[in-house]
Structure formats: C-alpha cells, structure tokens
Write a protein that binds this DNA or RNA. Structure first.
Lengths: 343, 343
DNA sequence: TTACAAAACGAAAGCGCTTCCATGTATAAG
DNA sequence: CTTATACATGGAAGCGCTTTCGTTTTGTAA
C-alpha cells in the first residue's frame, strides 16, 4: 500500500496555520507574511507535499491546463518551442497537454467537445495553415486561441518573419560568386501541413537575390521533404546541372545537414565549392560549422504562452501579433570575408 | 458569458431521480432499471450534459487518464496505434494524455513526480529501448506500466514479432532470381531511440535467406534514416554495386516508398528489375501496388490498452506478453508467380 | 496611549462528482 | 399471506482544493 499523499490539511496543521493560508502560499497570493510563508513552505517540504491538481481544478472551476496542438515533424523545433512555452506556463502553475496532429480526422476529434483538448483553458496552435482546415477558419471553441509560428488576423500570434529570413540569406550569399541554389521544404501530410514556411523563405530569398541583381532559376530550386536525405538528393540534383561553386540556401538546418553529408561524400569542400546557409539555428550547427539563420524559437514560444495567459486572465482586446526576426550566424560553411557579417 | 454547464444535479432533477442514480448511469453500474437509465440518458441529452472530468477525478481518487509515451517519428504507425488504444480506453471512459519524446531530458521531466504523466493512472510506453535509459531499467512509478511495440520481461507487453517478419520476407523473396538487398532503418535520436526494430527485421531476413540457401552480403544492406529519401539513396547505392534484378526488403513501407520513387526516376520496372517488399502494411501500399508485411498495429494497441486496464483494475499477476505476427500481402511489386503467396 | 484602517489569517462554504448507507420496492420462498 | 432476499434508489458524506467572509492582528497617525 502506498502511503496516502499528504493533503493541505496536514500541511496547515504542521505549520500551525489555516488551510486558507496554505492555499494562499500555493497560489502566491500577496497577503501572506513572509515568515508565515516560510513556515508553510517548510512544512510542505518536510511532508513532501504537492498539491492535488485535480482538486485544484474542481475547486477553481478551471482546468489549469492548456492544449498545444502541433504537427508531428521537426522534433527539434518543437522541442525548443515547448521549452519556451513551458517556462512561462509553469510559473503560472499551468500544465500543457500535447496534441500531435497525426491525421486530419484526429485533429477533428481533438477539437470535439468531449475531448481533453476541449476541457483545457486555452489553445496554443503551432501549425501553419491549420485554420484553413476549419469551417470559417475558426477554431470551434469558446476558449482563447493563440497561434505560434503562424499568423492570422483572427487570433493572437507569435511568429518569425520567414520572408525576411530569406532576404537576409540572399543578402549574405550575394557576396559570393557562383550560381545560387535553394532547397525548399515541403510538408507532405495533405492539407494539414499546408505549411507555407518553406515557400516564404525561398520567396524571400528570390526577392533578395533580385534586389542584389542575382539570379535564381526555377531549376535551381529543389523541393524536398523535410529530411536530411532530402538535402543529399538536392545537392546531387544541383551537381547534375552546374559546376561548383554552389551557393545554397537550405530552407532548414536539417536539409543543410544532408547537403553537408553529400558534399563530403562527393569530395566537395564546404565553404569553397559549396557555400551553405541553413535556417533554424539549432545548437548542433555550431559544431558542424554551419552558417544559419537562427530563429528565436524559445522566445517565440514564451511570448505565445504569455499572450495566451493574458487572454485566460481576461484580456479582451483585438488580436495582437508578435513578430520575431531571425539572426544571421556566420560560420565556416559560408567562409566569411571577415568575421561576422555586418549589415 | 458562456452559460454554465449543467451539472449532475440538474440532470437528476429533470429525470426525477437522485444524483446517485445519475452517477450510476454514468458509470454503467448494473443496478439501474433499464427504464430509469433511459430517462436519465434522455435528460442528459436534452440538457447537453457531459460530466466534469475533474470532479470525477477528485471524487473517484483516480485520474481516469493514462499516459502514452511515444517517439516523434513514423506518424502513420503511431496514428494507427493510437486508434487501437483509444478504442479500448474510451469504452472504459478513460482519457489518453500524449507524451511525445522530443529529447531525453524531456522524457526525464515527464517521469518526474509532479508532471502530468505521473498524475495518470497508468503508463503505456511505445518506445523500444526506452527502458534502457532508466535506472534499473524500471520506470520510476508505482503505477502500472505496459509496453507496446516493445518487449520486456519486467512489464506487460504487446509486440509484433519482427524477426519472424524478416524470415517471412526472406521466404517470399527467395523465390526470385537475382541478388538480395535490404534496407535497415536506424533511428537517430541518440540512446532514446535505441530501436532494435530495424535490426531485428534484417536479422530475421538474413536468417531466412540462409535457410533458403541465399546470400546477403553486408554491402547489400543499406542503413538508412527513417525517410522516403533514405529509400531513394538506398536504391542508388545498390545500383552502384550490382545489375538488376534487385530483390529488396525494405525495413518499412516508408523506405520502400522512396525505392519506388527512385526506381521510376531511374526507369527500372518494379516487379521485374526491382522486386520490393515493405513492412507495416499501411493503407496506401495498396494503391502503390507495394507488397508488404502487414502489422496488426491497431490490434496491438488495443491489446496493450486492455493489459493496462486489467492492471488498473487490480490484476496482480506476473507480466504477460502478447505477441503478434505480421501478415504477408503480395502485390505487384513482388509480381507473384500466382495470386496470393501460400505458405 | 488610543483609534482606526489595512493587512493577515482561520474557517466555512462550496466545486461536481463517487460511494456508501439507509430506505424502499419487487420477487422468491415458506 | 407472511417473511426473507435481492435489487433499486435517494441522499449524505467526502475527495482536496479555492474563495469568500468575518475576525484578529499589525501598523500608523493622532
């Protein structure tokens, strides 16, 4: 028999206070004297107390949980996003329930009124173009909804300016001689992932190149699924049409990784015959010497969480959008003329 | 203002019964007269009532939720698995909380005592080799644990015999002339995904080929990440070493898909110059004419859910293992001598 | 020191359920 | 027709919290 968990009453008794005070300590209510709070905290840790979240939910009339709806790809991106979200929400003693979208019917079920997603106090939606799937492009819920890594005029959103990222890539790569190439990622899961991210980045890239007076023929854009192997195929494809040097803007670090692998296999020197710029700024790019456009993923997640908490706390204004910009990090894959590239 | 949700009291009042009876109807308690039950059910639907799960949890002392811990790959597989699990659990009025393992530290956090995963009534773990990460190879929880798509002597498990699948593949492909090849999938996420599935399938394949007196040189095994593009690279690799026909056992349908794509690109006729056998039995293999070893994924999920429910209901016996076998489905990618392959 | 507002606190009243116990009703046995 | 037994039911108690309300304590100004 597992010994029963201690309750708020035992803590109150041990700390010689009422249960109301214990609850106030739990919820960071201001009117508790510091020394009382200390005493309560001490009692808690000596008993190994942790509050029963279910009781909290029924008493509070809220679930103290939010739903995060996200696609099942790009592990690393979503891991970082979650990191940022969690940080903000845990301060508010909120939990996150994850809803990976495995398929369109499943999304529908998530949004049905009996499901867990529906029982939460708010929705964080991290899927581009998800709204397109829904009637009226609106989520069928009374609860607040915030988009993250996506933009819509109907909802609060926190997103990165991918188009700008593309232009920054162009600006950076334009310094080099040789032809320009791009790898555009394309998600496959039918409508669900009507992800415009890949398009936007490459569109920005194209735009930037035009401004710089450089060309990007359609045949120099390789459309790839989101995998390292896609990057390898892309480089093979480019090698079939042109001679080095190749200036390649990979729509994502993972694609760039594949290019690195294939370049090594083909004996091409990265930084000279292959100049390569990724997108995402994942930690491992540092050790690989990969230049990249770093996205402030964690901050974006944190901001989205804040927007949602504001709504949950009753904020009623019109939708707010928080736009983030990527940061260029230059490493040896785009062997810079000198140090960090300056604007 | 959203109108307050109806409670059990309103239902009781409308149906002219006590709240106890309503609760009994909710929980399928046997001692409710059919006509009373009807009346209560009618009242519920006329009020649009649905029970408050949080209240249920605090009153019942259980969370009526189980955790499903799963890797972030192979969407399709886990979608189907979830389908099977859901079916069983929803009958028992249980919810599923999903915990995708984005990274090892995150797994640790999931298992920490304050987290949601810990608050649930049981764990369903769908990750090969996950246990290896943990001290003593045991999950740090008092709650029942059931493995799905994985086996361990310490826990109840439901799994598919991958080795057998490999042998079946060998038996099937051995009818053809030409050299043998295999694509072995390998997960990348460090320890986390120490997934032996790919190995087992290929090991079984090798074993079966040996019994059939056929060879599988090491150089004919291409180790690939889990992506369609991996399959394309594999075929390129095989083409560099040998001439057609190629008899290829792809460790997964997704890899086989890549082989199909590359074969078309290279102008190789599938079923003649390239004989290809997948693994998984995903629905789309039918339209692609891909032969495959179908796994009873949904059934496996359902069975795992049943094992877990048994434990939650108090079953105390020693670990039970439920083994499933794949089924060979022959299509035109392994142009059969005649109809369906018979044992 | 007294007077009074503000801050800190204890305890009671819920939150919406499950479960238990007492009561009532129908059926079987005597 | 009576007594025993099972089944059906209503309602109170209780799950562990939050929140409100009223009381006590503290701090501050007179």
């Amino acid at each position: 028999m597992a010994k029963r968990k201690p309750t708020i009453h035992e803590v109150a008794h041990l700390a010689k206070v009422g249960i109301g005070t214990v609850s106030r300590v739990l919820n960071n209510h201001p009117s508790v004297r510091p020394e009382t709070r200390e005493r309560v905290l001490a009692a808690m840790s000596s008993l190994g107390y942790s509050p029963n979240p279910h009781a909290r939910r029924v008493a509070g009339g809220r679930s103290y949980t939010i739903s995060l709806i996200l696609p099942v790809i790009s592990t690393e991106f979503y891991n970082r996003l979650l990191e940022g979200i969690e940080q903000v929400l845990s301060e508010a003693r909120y939990e996150i329930a994850l809803f990976p979208i495995f398929s369109p019917p499943r999304l529908q079920r998530y949004l049905e009124s009996r499901s867990l997603a529906y029982q939460t106090d708010g929705l964080l939606v991290a899927s581009q173009g998800l709204a397109h799937l829904l009637p009226d492009q609106k989520f069928p819920t009374e609860r607040p909804v915030v988009l993250v890594d996506a933009y819509s005029p109907r909802y609060d959103s926190a997103y990165v300016d991918n188009r700008l990222g593309g232009r920054m890539a162009a600006q950076h790569l334009a310094q080099f001689s040789g032809e320009m190439f791009a790898i555009q990622m394309q998600e496959e899961l039918d409508e669900l992932m009507r992800n415009t991210v890949g398009q936007e980045r490459v569109a920005g890239f194209r735009e930037g190149l035009r401004q710089a007076g450089r060309k990007l023929p359609d045949s120099h854009v390789f459309i790839s699924r989101f995998s390292a192997e896609g990057g390898r195929l892309a480089l093979q494809h480019f090698m079939r049409q042109s001679k080095p040097p190749y200036n390649i803007f990979a729509g994502a670090d993972l694609l760039a990784l594949g290019v690195l692998e294939e370049a090594e296999r083909q004996g091409l020197k990265v930084g000279e015959q292959v100049r390569l710029l990724g997108f995402d700024g994942h930690p491992w790019t540092a050790t690989k010497g990969l230049s990249t456009l770093a996205q402030p993923i964690e901050e974006m997640g944190a901001e989205a969480a804040r927007l949602l908490m504001d709504r949950i706390r009753g904020y009623k204004g019109s939708p707010r959008a928080k736009r983030f910009e990527p940061t260029l990090i230059v490493r040896k894959s785009t062997q810079p003329p000198q140090g960090v590239y300056a604007d």
